[in-house]
Design a protein around this nucleic acid. Structure first.
Lengths: 189, 189
DNA sequence: CGTCTATTTGAATGTACTCAAAAGCGGTGG
DNA sequence: CCACCGCTTTTGAGTACATTCAAATAGACG
């Protein structure tokens, strides 16, 4: 069942009885997307947080010159959202799309707020998630200043070992913040 | 009273009755530090999260060449910690020190865990804090790749308007990730 | 007042980008 | 099943943004 991965993830942090599990699952919506399909466009309000049960998503920003900057990949077992937009329910700046056919579990902002009220320990679960993600982005924001492109490439390989030979070099370039041309030269040097 | 700023901050997110307030305050420790005094060194375990009631702290990383990279400043009303170390209670990679004489409220990891158990709605408070901080570091990590030094300088001015004419250029350079020499040239161009 | 650190300025260098063009590769339709 | 089209990757030459090293000046603090 595609809920199992999520329940297992949650079980690492909080204990749910059968009733709570069912209640939680009733808030979720299953969604299937095809490769290249968008789940969120710039200017959209991100109404649901997404948990990837199979496949892989990515969140990216498009700058005024048409350059993509990838904020994160979300392989199987990862949550993804435009956090700014999801929290504030205002239009966001990110695109989210599928790198391959994928299956997702969605929880809407409204249902998540209900969940926090009805099963408060989910505050704990999502607090721990947010804290871990925070630590990771804190590191990355400093690494993006102090590391060279080559070092950032190596960090990428460590962070997403399953993606290295699955995604294109262009995607990796957009994640580490270099041009595809430069990454190609770097890997052939 | 120096607790007021913190209680006001908390009141924006959760409602506490008088008893809960007192219980919370009993977990806190007041600490005064002088300018340049360190609160955390690289390799230390960060045992307490710190709330700045007056003054200003900063968290920074020192690389192998002796360059400082400032992760964040914490003026009055901000929380600061080495989140990685605080969460895991393992040795961290950050230094935290005072930019001027400052007054802090500390909550130890152990007391915070007790607090979560005894007044679970603090999970909500710290979840919201972590989420906001996450959004801010997500933006910064991409800005550090796609913006030029001049644009990062402008973002810095927006984020910390009270610090611009209080801290040295060298500090700003260490935050936006350029050499002091380059920042000087940039500002005189 | 003297010392230490921060800032300024300049010349040479390096890392990564831009633009351009060719080669490779994958998917789609005839 | 092959040919074509579009996108990715490669390669090269010229350029830009930021660094390094060095030295002079200015400022802050005890």
């Amino acid at each position: 069942m595609n809920h199992d991965l999520l329940l297992a993830n949650i079980a690492k942090h909080i204990q749910l009885n059968e009733e709570e599990k069912q209640h939680f699952l009733s808030f979720l919506q299953v969604k299937k997307v095809k490769k290249k399909q968008h789940l969120l466009l710039e200017g959209d309000v991100n109404r649901s947080a997404m948990f990837v049960t199979s496949g892989c998503l990515r969140a990216y920003h498009l700058d005024e010159n048409g350059f993509q900057y990838i904020q994160q990949f979300a392989p199987e077992g990862w949550w993804i959202a435009d956090m700014y937009s999801f929290i504030t329910q205002e239009p966001g700046h990110l695109y989210i799309d599928a790198l391959c056919d994928s299956e997702l579990l969605l929880i809407s902002k409204a249902n998540l707020e209900k969940l926090y009220k009805e099963i408060p320990k989910f505050n704990h679960y999502f607090r721990v998630l947010a804290e871990k993600s925070l630590v990771s982005f804190q590191s990355r924001s400093m690494e993006n200043l102090r590391l060279t492109a080559k070092e950032r490439y190596e960090k990428f390989c460590l962070r997403y070992p399953t993606l290295i030979d699955f995604i294109s070099q262009k995607q990796i370039a957009a994640y580490i913040g270099v041009t595809p041309e430069f990454l190609s030269k770097m890997l052939h040097a």
